[in-house]
């Protein structure tokens, strides 16, 4: 302690000088004139340069901490990107549906697919719209791209529809270009086939197939698919393979058209068939 006192006594002149200089600098930097502003700018610039030089020296512990933080941030950002992508895709889908809603004159109910089967011979989809939403049996199920199927069973809040890949589906269709009629059905394997097409019929790959006005179940003019392959079925008929307009693998939302078969027409046709 005594030694410290002696050291202080030895240095008292310099201590006093330092204190007085500090006071002077305090007064100087209390001013707000152009010189002090300039000196402040220089001081900040110098301090920044020194500090940036020091930060170049790696600190292992800080780097570990920073890495951990960055990894966590990375995970969070990756999740956010994933959510944003999902939102973007949903936005695209919903925009298409909205455009479809505006373009289509028929009233309809929109629904989300909550379940679907694609690998059986009688494939169906379950939709989260039912009788409470005025969905009834035999109503057509469509998407922006075209025909998807037909309602075959309804509950209060859900309904089940046969899709085109169902052996029970029979749809009267026609070629948009040549107006050639045929019956669309699923062969139970992987193809949609247009039957009852004569060998001489003008049907080529790429022709658009739409629903026919002969059908009492579906409104006419709904796109069903395109011709992808034509060949001879037998001596009389052609084998026409159709690729559906709707991609059932990625299908998520559908519209149920509020269109029911004309009862008079159905009764008349049924009674005539019975008479025969």
């Amino acid at each position: 302690m005594k030694r410290i006192g002696l050291v202080i006594l030895d240095l008292k002149e310099y201590i006093i000088l330092t204190v007085l200089i500090i006071f002077s600098l305090y007064f100087i930097f209390s001013n707000d004139n152009s010189q002090i502003r300039f000196l402040r700018a220089v001081a900040i610039g110098t301090f920044g340069t020194v500090q940036s030089g020091l930060t170049a020296i790696p600190n292992v512990f800080e780097l570990q901490q920073e890495n951990k933080l960055l990894r966590e941030t990375n995970i969070k950002l990756a999740n956010e990107i994933s959510n944003l992508k999902e939102s973007k895709l949903e936005n695209i889908r919903l925009t298409k549906l909205l455009n479809f809603r505006e373009e289509n004159k028929l009233s309809f109910v929109s629904g989300r697919i909550v379940n679907k089967s694609l690998v059986q011979t009688r494939n169906t989809i379950t939709i989260n719209a039912g009788e409470a939403d005025s969905v009834f049996i035999n109503m057509p199920v469509v998407t922006v791209e075209g025909l998807a199927g037909r309602i075959v069973s309804t509950g209060r809040n859900y309904s089940i529809a046969n899709i085109l890949y169902n052996k029970d589906m029979r749809i009267t269709v026609k070629s948009q270009r040549t107006r050639i009629d045929g019956i669309l059905m699923y062969d139970g394997l992987q193809n949609l086939i247009m039957t009852n097409v004569l060998k001489s019929a003008d049907l080529t790959a790429g022709d658009l197939i739409i629903t026919s006005e002969y059908s009492n179940l579906f409104p006419p003019g709904i796109p069903v698919g395109t011709v992808t392959e034509t060949g001879n079925l037998d001596n009389l008929f052609k084998k026409v393979v159709i690729t559906p307009a709707v991609n059932f693998q990625t299908l998520e939302e559908v519209f149920i058209l509020k269109h029911l078969p004309d009862k008079d027409r159905a009764d008349l046709e049924n009674s005539y068939q019975k008479k025969k």
Binding site: L17, F23, S24, I28, F29, S30, N31, N33
Partner: peptide, 20 residues
């Protein structure tokens, strides 16, 4: 410091110069 105060500008500058 007294001269700085009397001159009214840049207080502390002459104090520093005279101290040194």
């Amino acid at each position: 410091l007294l001269l700085d105060i009397l001159s009214g500008s840049f207080v502390g500058l002459l104090a520093l110069a005279y101290t040194v």
